[in-house]
Write a protein that binds this DNA or RNA. Structure first.
Length: 527
RNA sequence: GCUCGUGUGGUGUAGUUCGGUCCAUCAUGUCGCCCUCUCGAGGCGACGACCCGGGUUCAAAUCCCGGCACGAGCACCA
């Protein structure tokens, strides 16, 4: 009896060991998120991070964070820092990354340039890539003609016919060039998507993608494939927006002679009008949700229920609970609409069910009810105080999500249409400022006043209302500075929407006209 | 425009793999009622959906075909 049970357990032990070996050897799950540090931390990044994490955790694997900063003109260190700290705030933590290192670093693409150079040479040698000397003018012309002929715009392979001598000559002459991926002339690329099954895309639809820019930096496609391979990524879980370029990636793996990872393309978060979530229509910055008083647990929980349900349909869960039973096949494929009303409900439940009153108090203190923040408001309010009790009513708009006001207050005494125009211009101009402080904000509005040939005082009234809810309030520029870019922008957007529903906003035509006028007076927009 | 992807109430979803147990689940939202000093929270209830048209079948949300709608991609951006 004792002996046989010993044998049994010995057998189980041994076969477990074998199983574990097989898993470790073949199946070590490694997923990644690869944000590009070109703006404020996006909820979509958090969404992808959450599912990559849940998948990795479920399979006892790791998630890697890699910074994709190959666009040197747009990438900033501030943005990188902001993204890392926002993800940390949410509690979505990575096992390897630029801040904590790891076995397969560096984790910032700008620090891996040599690896890509070598990789591209390998591709050229293998006949998968070639140099291209075409000018932007020629490319534009080709594209124009193709669109006229209703074809998918695509490089025509012009430089493919260059001889070795011609190439050498051009390079020696110092002509600018890029490297392109050579796409097969016919057939289709078929690949397996973990969620959607077989996907087939004709090669004729795929462009001869530039894989190295003329500044010597690789593009996303090349860099991410090379890094995913070197970082031993087993499962690429990313947004649906990448499906159409997956053939390029598969071809790159083939060119290198590497085995591609599995791919899973998740649906994209949507605006209420079903378009891809964008800051024009919805707050997309993680910082907005933090500033507006949401707590990280609720935000993560909410993102988790976008497209996913636990097997028992429970709605309140954390990352750990989600990971335990996580099955990527349970994802819904329709793009979920990011519904702030439901997020608020969920956040409320966390506040009253998951946290104790004392914990809620601590959160509030850490959030804005602290000496530092209130201390910054006080100097602005002081001249306006007669009693201590005057303070909070004055400061209210700096502590709440958004103020309330009437459309009449917003429209003010300005001519109809002017408030909307000013708000829109400011929205665009605010995208351009490099640092969000009193000085920059002040000069921004001075500039608008000058350009629009109005007095500063005149243009400011709609902003006072949009930001504070009243024309009688604390100084605007200081208030904006304290509010931060995300809350401020959202308030301007809300004001614009209010004007639009009242019929005194910008019509489609008006907006087009304003866009042109803006480009002329203020230069190009950044979106 | 071309290509790919996706379609269950206003919104998030279960059910679709292997057709019946689905005159379709749960939640949110809106409205109403109860509780309560008000409001809120909580409880209860109502409203509201299988994109459309064919086909297969005794039986279709589920399988097949054809439409339609929506989204994404089509950059020296990622």
């Amino acid at each position: 009896m004792a002996r046989s049970s010993f044998q049994t357990s010995e057998f189980v032990r041994r076969s477990n060991k074998i199983l574990v070996c097989v898993r470790l050897h073949k199946m070590t799950v490694r997923t990644r998120i690869a944000p590009s540090p070109t703006g404020s931390p996006h909820v979509g990044t958090a969404y992808m991070a959450l599912f990559n994490l849940a998948f990795a955790r479920k399979h006892g694997g790791k998630m890697i964070l890699r910074i994709e900063d190959t666009d040197q003109s747009r990438s900033t260190k501030e943005s990188e820092d902001a993204i890392l700290s926002s993800l940390k705030w949410l509690g979505l933590c990575w096992d390897e990354g630029p801040d904590c290192g790891g076995e397969f670093g560096p984790y910032r693409q700008s620090e891996r340039i040599e690896i890509y150079k070598e990789a591209i040479q390998k591709l050229v040698d293998a006949g998968y890539a070639y140099p291209c000397f075409c000018t932007a003018e020629r490319l534009n012309e080709v594209r124009k003609r193709q669109i006229e002929n209703k074809e998918t715009p695509r490089y025509d392979g012009h430089c493919l016919s260059l001889s070795k001598e011609e190439i050498e000559q051009k390079m020696q002459a110092g002509e600018k060039y890029v490297y392109r991926l050579k796409i097969p002339d016919e057939g289709a690329c078929e690949f397996e998507d973990e969620l959607r099954g077989k996907v087939s895309i004709e090669w004729s639809q795929v462009d001869h993608q530039i894989i190295q820019k003329s500044d010597g930096f690789p593009t996303y496609h090349l860099a991410s494939v090379v890094d995913d391979y070197h970082m031993k990524i087993s499962h690429v879980i990313r947004g649906e927006e990448w499906i159409n370029s997956t053939p390029k990636h598969i071809l790159l793996y083939e060119g290198f002679g590497w085995k591609p990872p599995s791919f899973a393309h998740l649906p994209l978060l949507r605006n209420p009008d079903k378009s891809k979530l964008s800051k024009r229509k919805n707050p997309t910055s993680i910082d907005y949700y933090k500033d507006a008083g949401f707590i990280p647990e609720a935000v993560v929980n909410y993102l988790g229920m976008m497209g996913y349900t636990l097997p028992d349909q429970r709605e309140i869960f954390d990352l750990e609970e989600m990971s335990e039973s996580f099955d990527i096949k349970r994802m819904s494929l329709g793009g979920p609409i990011f519904d702030i009303a439901k997020l608020k409900w969920l956040n409320g439940r966390y506040l009253r069910e998951k946290l104790s009153p004392d914990e809620v108090l601590q959160r509030m203190l850490a959030w804005k009810a602290n000496p530092e923040f209130l201390g910054k408001i006080l100097p602005l309010a002081l001249q306006r105080l007669e009693t201590l009790s005057d303070f909070f009513p004055l400061a209210q708009f700096l502590l709440n999500d958004a103020p309330e006001y009437t459309i009449d207050a917003l429209a003010g005494k300005l001519e109809p249409g002017i408030p909307a125009k000013l708000l829109k211009i400011a929205e665009w101009e605010l995208e351009k400022i490099s640092s969000w402080d009193r000085e920059s904000l002040s000069s921004l509005f001075q500039k608008i006043a000058e350009t629009e040939e109005l007095k500063l005082k005149q243009i400011l009234s709609p902003f006072f209302v949009a930001i504070s809810g009243s024309t009688v309030s604390l100084p605007l520029f200081d208030s904006l500075a304290l509010l931060g870019p995300d809350l401020a922008r959202t308030r301007i957007r809300i004001a614009l929407e209010k004007l639009a529903v009242e019929g005194v906003g910008l019509s489609k035509k008006g907006l087009k006209k304003l866009e042109k006028e803006y480009a002329q007076k203020y230069g190009n927009r950044i979106d």
